[in-house]
Structure formats: C-alpha cells, structure tokens
C-alpha cells in the first residue's frame, strides 16, 4: 500500500482554528495560554491560536530550565515576535531544583518529568491569571508512543494538534510559513543538553509515522505491517510502546462501587450544556 500522510493544509488549518475558537468561547472564555518551547509543535499551536482568537488573546510562555538551550529560547522569541503576542518568560529552575536538589542521584527521567510538571503548574497558574484555557501541544505520534509526561506537557484543556502525526505537523507548519529554523531543526524535548527525540526513540519520525499510520489509522495487523516491508523488531517495539503507554491517553480507572460512576456509566461530553 502506498502510505501517504499528506493532508490538505487549508482544510486542516480551517478546521483546527474553528475547533480552538469553538471550544474556548463556548465555555465563556476568549483567551488561551500555551507554553512555547521553541519547537515546531508549540509554534504551530501558537499560529493556529492567533488565527482563531487574535494575537492579543494568546499568551505565550517561555519556561526555561538552567540547562535549556539558548536556541530554544531564541526560537520561541522568534515566534513571539512574528505573531506579536503577549508573552512571559518564567524560568522554572528554582522551582524544579527545589525538588531535584534533594536527590543527588536523581535520574534524567525523573528530572525531565519534574521539569515538565513544573511547566504544567506554571501554565495552569497563568491560565487563571490571564483567564485563558491551556492549549495542548502534543501531537499524535508522541501520544501514541507515550513520548510525553503524564500531567506534565500532556496536561491541557484542549488539544488542537493531537490527531496530527509529527510529519503532518511539519507539513502544516510549512504551509503556515512558520520560520524554517524551527521547522527544520531536529525535534528535542530539550530536557538535557544535546537531547534529540529521534536519538532517544531510536527511529525517525518519518519512519514511525508511516508505521503508526498503518497500525492505527488503517488497522493493519503486525504481520501485515511486516509484509509491507517494516522490520519485525521495529513493528513489535512500536506496538508494545502503543500498548504500554495507553494509560497516558485515557482518564485513570475508578474502582466501580456504586450504581453510577464517571467514566463507565455516568457519561456526558465535556461540551455538555454548551
């Protein structure tokens, strides 16, 4: 099968900006807050949000840690300047180190999670201060692979790009003329020096998106993916990542005791009454 992940960028841009506008305004809000990392995902969300809500209604927050690269900060600033949005720079070093310093042997993973969650706290605080909802900036690829911190960077009120694969994020970002240095640089969580996503994951987004598209969107079995030319180990690894990280994509299970329980038989949309 020919694997073509390309989307009609006009159609998607239109759909996502209307989604942002609808989901923010129907709850009585008119503004949004997001963390701007300097990477492509949050840059794209910022562009979409500005189109949806107007620049003055989108607060972009830079939240560097002491090891964050200068490039990340500069690229985030580039977006802020391009879009002419209100912005804040709130370093998280002090708050993160308050915990990190208590554990001299702390692993990189723990530190990374703490940073992601400090940013979540900061954004939700700004959400209240700015009276805007927090926009998620996680894409479909990282959600499926579980390449995110639960209650950290994954926390948000709504997520406009959660059903776009990373390669589709790139396609849409190019169409929206997001500056090339941001679109073209290697993706990085920038949790430690020199980190890149693809190095840490062990494969490129280009490769894994093609496989995820077959598994998820087209319902291919692992065997059918291998028949399409994907390496068995790659198929198994990705399949296992999807399964193991599913908990990050759903609400935590509640022990069923009563006759009606949220999540199982007390079911309403979030948009109930709006």
């Amino acid at each position: 099968m020919e694997i073509d992940l390309s989307v009609n960028t006009d159609l998607v841009n239109n759909l996502l900006t209307r989604f942002i506008r609808s989901e923010i305004t129907r709850t009585g809000y008119s503004k949004a807050v997001l963390g701007l990392s300097g990477g492509i995902d949050s840059a794209l969300v910022a562009y979409l949000a500005v189109e949806a809500l107007g620049a003055e209604n989108v607060l972009c927050v830079r939240m560097p840690y002491k090891t964050s690269s200068q490039d990340s900060l500069d690229h985030a600033q580039l977006i802020i300047d391009e879009l002419n949005v209100p912005s804040l720079t709130i370093p998280i070093t002090e708050m993160a180190d308050g915990l990190i310093d208590k554990y001299p042997d702390m692993s990189k993973m723990r530190k990374g999670n703490i940073m992601a969650r400090c940013r979540m706290i900061t954004l939700y605080d700004q959400s209240e201060a700015f009276k805007g909802l927090v926009l998620g900036t996680g894409n479909k690829t990282e959600s499926l692979l579980g390449y995110s911190t639960i209650f950290g960077d994954a926390a948000c009120a709504i997520n406009p790009i959660g059903d776009l694969f990373k390669t589709q994020v790139r396609q849409l970002s190019r169409a929206l003329k997001i500056p090339a240095p941001i679109v073209d640089k290697p993706p990085s969580a920038d949790l430690w020096l020199g980190q890149t996503d693809e190095q840490e994951l062990g494969f490129t987004y280009e490769e894994v998106d093609r496989l995820l598209y077959l598994i998820v969107d087209q319902r291919y079995s692992p065997l059918e993916c291998i028949e399409e030319g994907f390496d068995k180990l790659f198929v198994d690894t990705v399949g296992e990542r999807i399964r193991r990280n599913h908990y990050k994509r759903i609400m935590p299970p509640i022990a069923k005791i009563s006759s009606r329980t949220a999540g199982s038989d007390f079911l309403y949309l979030r948009d109930w009454g709006t």
Binding site: D4, S6, V7, N8, D10, L11, V12, L15
Partner: peptide, 8 residues
C-alpha cells in the same frame, strides 16, 4: 473525517 482532499 478525512482531511486529505479539498473537501472533508
């Protein structure tokens, strides 16, 4: 559902 063409 479906965003590959000009129309949904």
């Amino acid at each position: 559902r479906g965003v590959t063409d000009e129309v949904i």
